[in-house]
Design a protein around this nucleic acid. Structure first.
Length: 610
RNA sequence: GGCUUCGUAGCUCAGUUGGAUAGAGCAACAGCCUUCUAAGCUGUGGGCCAUGGGUUCGAAUCCCAUCGAAGUCACCA
């Protein structure tokens, strides 16, 4: 049982006996005692004043006295204003440490066969360009959320919806046809998604040129600038050709489909590589080309049931004005489907494939409105899960000079970023290796590279996950990523140091004790560490409930900070008192265990040495 | 303009059922490697928690207004 619960119970009892008043266990406010005061847990007594009819100090004194006499876990207490600071007996902390020590999967709940099934959609790339930093944030958040939900006892299905059809793909296809000379990833040595991205950019470049020329022509014919531009954007030969290609695609034209198939395969091969580097994967991948017709059918059915309206030009709309929203287009006048229609189809297929209890979409906050509408539409269409779908809305990554825009070339490419992080990690390791002691002593090249990969990716992942996902975040390519301070490598380093100590202890023949011995005295830092470890199980549940990887990240950082202070002040291997040494070995091992577990929930690996 | 979200140190960020003197890291300065890995530890300086009201024993946290930023309001996805 957790110490907070034990004390809450005891406090309720104390109030009952002292003031003859009933207090719910829930109402008892216990918080960690601030560093500058003595004690471990602090009771806020203000809520009890109306029961005691006494001053805060006296009330705290009363309750403290009672607890010290009746509750064995409370060793002593002190009162500062309305705050009752309680010191917990060392024996209790040893007991807590033992329970953590005995549980190999401490903090993790196994999902039973009847556990809730959560489907989590993330990544959702377009197949016309490579992944960038924004996608990286999405992928890492999605993966981490899946790990956290699983650790909290849910069954989790990770899914991806690939936007593999539409005008954007046709643009790349057209550009490749026109200027590609049959270039392939193999012939050019270029990663497939980048190759396709190049042609998308090429299309845009030529298209803009056409628009510019046409606009000039229209203006000379007497149009004003704005309408000339609008007309030019529609009339440019390239965009008309792309549209014609899209129509052919929808009609199933064999030639176009073959090209589409081939180029998408290139992109998928490229994405797979990036996903592998990021350490993410999916249980089930959906393709928009498979789901958009389902969505269209669903909308037609809804139309037949009078849920939607068809305009004169043939387009289909949902009227959401009674919900305080606008009217929303579902099917274009030319009969093709839009984004919303496809999402309806995808949702339907998913719930056919899985008995989903909970659906979570990891999608950027620029789509808040979209998911609000999707939820209402699914509900109206009669899907009982429509109302309860959850849009995990995360903020965008901003660059010092503004938003990332692929057209303006202000994107941070995912592959480049990964490469750069790993390279920086390697150079940092090499530089530190030249110091007083060679950290890389005895490592071969492969091992050095593997550590650089783990550390570089750890830095990147931690940087993106430690901040509150809902907020926009700033990424300064020049100086943002650091390997010191509140970073992934800081935590990984602490882990590697502990592992090193444990290896040395083992080599000395000092085996890890099965049991934590009772009656070993504890100093403040040891107690604080145990108290910190004791929170982990609750932190995991909290992270799952709030869907917040940053809760885990910040917990791990605090834990490591605490450990580092301990590590600095006390020796472990050189501790002369054998019982004390055994205790510290257990304590260190448990800190390492929790770090590893927490980092795993963030998708971050920990190195045995670095 | 309507709606949504956000505003905490020079910079990047923590701070959730309202609790003590608002915390880290980076950057600056000053210390600590002859003992377990210095990617570390210790110290100094740095704050009108955007602004103004309100709610109460108590507000960075809850409510209202104002200012500022971002997103969205497409026959793009």
């Amino acid at each position: 049982m957790k110490i907070e619960n034990i004390l809450a119970l005891a406090v309720a009892k104390a109030v009952k006996e002292l003031y003859q008043a009933d207090v719910e266990e829930q109402q008892v406010q216990l918080q960690k005692t601030k560093r500058e005061f003595e004690g471990h847990l602090t009771l806020v007594v203000f809520p009890f004043l109306r029961l005691s009819h006494k001053k805060p100090e006296d009330t705290a004194q009363d309750i403290g006295q009672w607890l010290a006499e009746h509750e064995p876990a409370v060793e002593k207490y002190n009162v500062i204003k309305g705050f009752l600071n309680l010191s917990i007996a060392p024996g209790f902390w040893l007991h807590v440490l033992q329970s953590i020590h005995a549980d190999a999967d401490y903090g993790i709940r196994q999902a039973g066969a009847d556990a809730p099934l959560v489907m989590i959609e993330y990544s959702s790339p377009n197949t016309n360009k490579p992944l960038h930093l924004g996608h990286v944030r999405n992928n890492l958040l999605g993966w981490s959320l899946a790990q956290i939900l699983q650790a909290a006892g849910n069954r989790v299905v990770k899914t991806n919806i690939v936007n593999d059809r539409g005008i954007h793909i046709c643009k790349s296809m057209l550009a490749w046809q026109r200027w590609g000379n049959g270039e392939t990833p193999q012939s050019s040595g270029r990663k497939g998604d980048h190759l396709i991205g190049d042609y998308y950019v090429a299309f845009d470049k030529h298209y803009r040129e056409e628009v510019k020329n046409l606009q000039q022509q229209y203006e000379q014919e007497g149009m004003d600038a704005d309408s000339a531009k609008a007309k030019a954007e529609k009339e440019a030969p390239l965009i008309k050709e792309a549209h014609a290609m899209l129509v052919k695609w929808e009609q199933g034209d064999a030639e176009v489909r073959r090209l589409w198939q081939m180029m998408n395969e290139w992109v998928y091969a490229g994405f797979d590589e990036t996903y592998r580097a990021l350490g993410v994967s999916f249980d089930k991948i959906y393709y928009e080309s498979d789901t958009y017709l389902v969505g269209k059918q669903e909308v037609e059915d809804g139309l037949a049931r009078g849920l939607f309206e068809r305009h004169e030009d043939g387009s289909v709309w949902a009227d959401l004005t009674d919900e305080g929203l606008d009217k929303k287009l579902l099917i274009r006048s030319d009969g093709t489907s839009v984004y919303m229609t496809q999402d309806i189809g995808t949702a339907k297929l998913r719930f056919q494939d899985y008995a989903i209890d909970r659906m979570i979409y990891v999608v950027g906050n620029e789509q808040d409105y979209h998911f609000k509408v999707l939820s209402i539409l699914l509900d109206r269409l009669g899907f009982k899960w429509g109302k309860s779908l959850r849009h995990f809305s995360y903020g965008m990554v901003e660059l010092p000079n503004g938003k990332m825009k692929s057209r303006e070339g202000t994107v941070v490419d995912a592959d480049d970023l990964v490469k750069e992080m790993i390279g920086t990690a390697r150079r940092t390791s090499d530089a530190l290796g030249e110091g007083r002691q060679d950290k890389q002593d005895g490592m071969d090249e492969a091992e050095k590279n593997e550590i650089a990969r783990i550390v570089g990716m750890g830095a990147l992942k931690y940087f993106l996950l430690k901040v509150d996902a809902r907020k926009n975040m700033m990424f300064n390519p020049a100086e943002s990523i650091d390997f010191n301070g509140n970073t992934g490598p800081f935590i990984q380093y602490a882990y590697a140091r502990i592992r090193s100590i444990l290896r040395k202890a083992e080599a000395e023949g000092c085996a890890m004790p099965e049991q934590v011995e009772a009656d070993v005295p504890l100093n403040d830092k040891e107690q604080a560490l145990i108290q910190h470890l004791a929170d982990y199980a609750e932190i995991v549940m909290e992270a799952a409930e709030e869907l917040s990887p940053s809760v885990i990240a910040n917990y791990c950082y605090d834990l490591v900070k605490e450990f580092n202070q301990f590590y600095h002040d006390y020796s472990i291997l050189h501790e002369p008192d054998a019982a004390k040494k055994r205790l510290r070995l257990v304590l260190s091992a448990e800190v390492a265990k929790v770090i590893k577990s927490g980092m795993q929930l963030l998708g971050i690996e920990v190195p045995e040495r670095m």
